Measured scan of single mutants.
Amino acid sequence: DEIHIHFNGVTIEFRGLTEEAKKALEEAIKRGASEEELKELARRLIK
């Protein structure tokens, strides 16, 4: 299970995320999180 985020022309790929983690990332994107914020969020979620 993986998710691809297209962000300002950059694709960020995450693997092994739970549904909750995906929802958290989607919410962050909707509120306009920066690419760095998304990566940091993903790091926290994957652990």
Rank of each mutant, 00 (worst) to 15 (best):
A28K: 04
F14M: 09
I46V: 09
K39I: 15
E19W: 04
F14L: 15
L45F: 09
L17T: 01
F7Q: 03
E26I: 14
L41A: 03
I3M: 10
I29W: 11
A33M: 12
L41P: 00
L41W: 02
F7H: 04
A21V: 09
L25F: 12
E20M: 06
R43S: 13
H4L: 08
S34I: 04
N8S: 02
D1E: 11
K22R: 07
T11E: 10
A28R: 04
K22C: 06
I12G: 01
H4S: 06
K30P: 01
E40S: 09
G16Y: 13
V10T: 08
L17C: 09
I5W: 06
K39W: 15
I46N: 12
K30M: 12
T11P: 01
G9Q: 01
V10S: 08
L38E: 00
L41F: 03
G9W: 01
L38G: 00
F14R: 01
T18A: 07
I5C: 12
E35K: 05
F14A: 11
N8E: 09
E36D: 12
L41R: 01
R15Y: 15
A33P: 03
F7L: 15
I29C: 06
A28G: 04
E13K: 12
E37R: 03
F14P: 01
E2N: 13
E27T: 11
V10W: 00
R44I: 13
K22G: 05
I46K: 04
H4W: 03
K30E: 12
E13H: 14
K39R: 12
E37I: 07
I29S: 03
H4G: 01
E2S: 15
I5Y: 06
A28D: 02
F7I: 15
E27K: 06
G16Q: 09
T11L: 12
R43K: 12
F14N: 02
K22D: 01
T18C: 08
K47V: 14
R15E: 15
I12S: 00
R31Y: 13
L45G: 03
A24F: 11
I3Y: 15
G32F: 07
A33T: 11
E26A: 07
F14W: 03
E40N: 06
F14V: 15
K39S: 08
H6A: 02
N8I: 02
N8Y: 01
H4M: 04
I5F: 13
I12A: 00
S34V: 05
E20H: 09
T18D: 12
H6V: 06
E19C: 05
A28E: 07
A42Q: 03
T11F: 05
L38M: 08
I46F: 03
K39G: 09
K47F: 07
E26H: 11
K47T: 14
K23L: 12
L38Q: 00
A42T: 03
L45D: 02
L17N: 01
E19P: 09
A28H: 06
G16D: 15
E2A: 14
L17Y: 02
L38N: 00
A42E: 03
H6N: 05
G16P: 05
R43W: 06
R15Q: 15
G32M: 05
R44N: 11
E26K: 10
R44D: 13
E2D: 12
D1M: 13
I5D: 01
K47A: 13
R44T: 10
E26S: 09
E27D: 11
A24W: 08
T18K: 05
A28S: 05
I12C: 03
A21L: 07
E27Y: 06
G16I: 02
K30H: 10
L25D: 00
E20A: 12
S34T: 12
R43F: 08
F14K: 02
E19N: 07
I46M: 06
A33H: 05
K39F: 15
E40W: 05
E40H: 06
K30R: 09
E2V: 15
A21I: 14
E20S: 09
A42H: 05
F7S: 04
H4I: 13
E35D: 09
R44A: 12
A42M: 10
F14Q: 03
K22A: 10
G9Y: 01
E36Y: 07
E2T: 15
L45Y: 08
K23N: 11
E40T: 05
R43M: 14
H4K: 14
A33V: 12
I29A: 04
I46G: 08
K39P: 01
A42V: 13
E40Y: 03
K23R: 11
R31W: 10
L17D: 01
E19H: 10
I12E: 03
E2K: 14
A33C: 10
L17I: 08
L25G: 00
K47R: 09
T11V: 13
E37Y: 09
G32R: 05
F7E: 02
S34N: 10
H6G: 02
E27I: 08
R44L: 11
L38C: 03
E40I: 06
S34F: 06
A21N: 12
E19D: 08
E37F: 12
K47I: 14
E13F: 14
A24N: 09
T11W: 05
A21H: 13
